[in-house]
């Protein structure tokens, strides 16, 4: 049986586990805010190999990495199994096979160590990156912009666990748009950071279309992508380095313009006390600068390594689940198409 008194201990240490997409990650978080360790598989050498191939998007990679990643997270946090007070794991959205690896490991740990465990929504976890290593936690209500390769969501957060979805992309996610732009410009992978680097040596002097979708909080980036394709076909862009840089800067500017303007407008309209950014695209310096320069409402931005997928955010989110008595049972299943709000 789970000892509920454990949950009321003063310093609560949560093991967070994340395997929803490409990253196998584990972290130990104290009281929902302090990072004792934060390990992502791509940072460490995994010695096991499967037929010489290390798939990047497959569940097999998670299976190879999950145990060494968790062991490293505990070692770095100087935490033993006995010191843990709970386990939090992402159960959706994501790839079913990948999610299953994390959820099953979390169940095994909870069962064998007699620990409470909780399933966490990956999108909710992203938001909780804003609670990590902060002197002052965010004030409710907050408007959360979650922007990554797979998601672009605008969510109102009224309190812990209280979410209302306001808008989302209707076609491509913001990070995906940047990635595909890099592909059209033949700049390579990962596209988001490459576009940002190119943009820093160019000028946003070209006009690309913005889909404002007036009256809706939704986003759309596929028209912008198609406009870029036509621009590249009509003009001799490829091979002309200064033009590529200007195109990258102008394309990025169009994406940022829509994200920042629509988010700030919604934040003023609601109104909210704070804007919380999260997801891989929130590490784009041009985007964060624009938010910080133009928003009349305080904006919280996690450091880059907490914007991309990690388990520290899962541990932080899990802590608040435990505080609210939101525990999962052993029949928790993965939900690949889980949404938030």
């Amino acid at each position: 049986m789970i000892n509920i008194e454990l949950l009321e201990r003063r310093n609560m240490k949560i093991l967070g586990i994340e395997t929803s997409c490409d990253e196998t990650a584990a972290a130990v978080i104290e009281n929902g805010t302090r990072i004792l360790s934060n390990v992502v598989a791509s940072q460490i050498e995994i010695h096991a190999r499967y037929g010489g191939i290390v798939p990047e998007v497959a569940s097999r990679q998670h299976m190879l990495s999950i145990v060494p990643v968790i062991e490293k997270a505990l070692t770095e946090a100087k935490t033993s199994w006995q010191d843990l007070d709970g386990v939090a794991v992402t159960f959706g959205p994501g790839l079913a096979g990948s999610l299953l690896v994390g959820v099953n490991v979390a169940k095994a740990i909870a069962l064998s160590q007699n620990l409470p465990f909780t399933g966490v929504n990956h999108l909710e976890a992203h938001i909780y990156a804003n609670w990590l290593n902060k002197e002052k936690p965010p004030s409710f209500p907050c408007l959360c912009l979650i922007i990554s390769g797979g998601h672009s969501e605008l969510v109102l957060m009224k309190g812990h666990g209280q979410f209302e979805k306001l808008g989302r992309t209707r076609d491509d996610a913001a990070g995906e748009a940047l990635d595909k732009a890099a592909r059209i410009l033949e700049l390579g992978y990962p596209g988001g950071p490459i576009i940002e680097k190119e943009a820093s040596s160019g000028k946003p002097c070209l006009q690309f279309p913005r889909a404002w979708l007036k009256g809706s909080h939704d986003f759309s980036f596929s028209g912008l992508k198609t406009a870029l394709w036509h621009f590249v076909q009509k003009n001799q862009v490829l091979g002309n380095n200064s033009l590529v840089a200007n195109v990258a800067a102008s394309f990025q500017e169009a994406v940022i313009d829509v994200l920042v303007t629509k988010t700030i407008n919604a934040a003023e309209e609601l109104p909210v006390k704070q804007i919380l950014l999260s997801g891989g695209v929130a590490s784009n310096k041009f985007l964060t600068k624009r938010f910080l320069d133009t928003s009349p409402i305080p904006v919280s931005v996690p450091p880059p390594h907490l914007c991309t997928d990690n388990a520290a955010m899962v541990g932080a989110c899990g802590y608040y689940h435990f505080q609210n008595g939101n525990l999962s049972s052993y029949d928790l299943d993965v939900v690949p198409s889980l949404s938030l709000g």
Binding site: C21, P93, L95, G150, T169, E176, D179, P336
Partner: peptide
């Protein structure tokens, strides 16, 4: 709902 691009997540179910 709008079916949106699964390029990064590989599979979406509706």
């Amino acid at each position: 709902e709008y079916a949106f691009s699964p390029s990064f997540v590989i599979i979406r179910e509706y």
